[in-house]
């Protein structure tokens, strides 16, 4: 019985370890983003951009990559750089894996740290520009 418990607890802690990043990202999302973006990133038409089956498109250009970190909700969030990087990488695969490019690279902490220091002051205009460019590229 003792052995069984030891093995079970090892297995259990391994399982937690394996999903730790995703679980922490999900909690960070719930606490910091979900209020407006909703539980599965569906957003509100005309108010909060939809991320479900969409946000992965931004990874098709360097400018799009930068925009997702410079958008005020991300850049100014109270999360630190490492938590932000983990959250963004989780979000991209959780909400929009099918839209990611074949050569998709997750964000690095350094990349997030550098980009978020220059928050975007006019996100609506920039989003339109970035998406216009990506849609031309994908056409």
């Amino acid at each position: 019985m003792k052995q069984f418990l030891a093995v079970a607890s090892m297995l259990f802690s391994t399982a937690i370890w394996a999903t730790d990043d995703a679980a922490r990202a999900r909690v960070d999302y719930a606490l910091n983003c979900q209020g407006c973006h909703l539980a599965r990133g569906e957003g509100f038409a005309g108010k909060v951009p939809r991320m479900t089956d969409f946000v992965g498109y931004y990874m098709h250009s360097e400018d799009g990559r930068a925009f997702l970190i410079q958008v005020p909700g991300v850049a100014l969030s109270p999360l630190n750089d490492a938590d932000t990087a983990r959250l963004m990488n989780w979000m991209l695969t959780e909400f929009s894996a099918a839209q990611l490019p074949a050569d998709y690279r997750p964000y690095t902490v350094d990349e997030v740290a550098a980009l978020r220091r220059q928050p975007e002051n006019d996100p609506n205009r920039r989003r339109a520009e970035v998406l216009a460019k990506i849609s031309r590229q994908l056409r």
Partner: peptide
């Protein structure tokens, strides 16, 4: 007009 105050 409307002035964006992103995150502020």
């Amino acid at each position: 007009g409307e002035v964006p105050t992103p995150g502020c």
